[in-house]
């Protein structure tokens, strides 16, 4: 447990120290959300209706930008080899690094969402659901992303392939994240059932994704 926490703390510190990742993700999120109303025109009702989907899709894209870094940098400078010889099995290494990605990228993006929602005229009563679903869904984004990052480790310019691999896996999270919000904004579907499925998706991902990521890491290390 000690080693696990140390690894999480190190990755969060590295993300903050290297800077780029967090601000790039936040900046990208802001730009995508800000540009959309310009393309769609100033129809406030339309914007309010599509706001949940827009906020979720752009969050996925923004998170994808930094997902590659979960393992790539450590592979490149050889630290991943040393980490692999440490006390943690690779499954827990993958989990720790995914968790660190969520803390350093997922949480800031989730917290930025309500601010960006102002640009899209999201109904006031939906703000708390927005924050709630984003905090619930973003761990799955980081953990699934880690699988893609591990799979594309050996490749040069694996970024695009990573997006192709991972974006389809995000679909369930996207669907239930958006439907949970729509349940509150437009009804009549009940809020709780969608939200609980979102929770279940995240929990299953957090448990299963590190196993897949570790298998891919073993392959990359050999």
């Amino acid at each position: 447990m000690h080693a696990f926490m140390r690894l999480v703390a190190r990755d969060v510190r590295l993300a903050l120290r290297e800077g780029g990742a967090v601000s790039t993700a936040l900046g990208f999120y802001l730009v995508v959300v800000a540009i959309l109303p310009l393309g769609l025109g100033p129809d406030l009702n339309l914007l309010a209706r599509i706001a949940p989907g827009v906020l979720w899709v752009s969050l996925l894209l923004a998170a994808l930008l930094s997902v590659e870094r979960i393992f790539h940098n450590d592979m490149e400078d050889g630290t991943l080899e040393v980490i692999a010889l440490g006390p943690l099995p690779l499954e827990l290494v993958a989990a720790a690094k995914s968790l660190a990605h969520w803390i350093s990228i997922g949480i800031p993006l989730a917290l930025a969402a309500p601010v960006l929602a102002l640009l899209l005229n999201l109904p006031a009563e939906a703000f708390w659901v927005l924050l709630l679903t984003m905090i619930t869904g973003t761990p799955a984004i980081s953990f699934l992303g880690a699988v893609g990052a591990a799979l594309t480790l050996g490749l040069r310019r694996g970024g695009l392939l990573l997006a192709l691999l991972v974006l389809p896996l995000y679909v369930p999270i996207l669907v239930f994240g958006v439907s949970t919000m729509n349940a509150v904004i437009t009804g009549p579907a009940p809020f709780l059932s969608s939200y609980l499925i979102l929770c279940a998706l995240t929990l299953a991902t957090v448990v299963l994704a590190p196993i897949a990521a570790a298998a891919a890491l073993r392959l990359s290390l050999s």
Partner: peptide
């Protein structure tokens, strides 16, 4: 075991 390969396992930001 300790493994010292071609890469140093050094984090440049630290």
């Amino acid at each position: 075991c300790h493994y010292v390969g071609h890469l140093n396992g050094v984090k440049r930001a630290f």
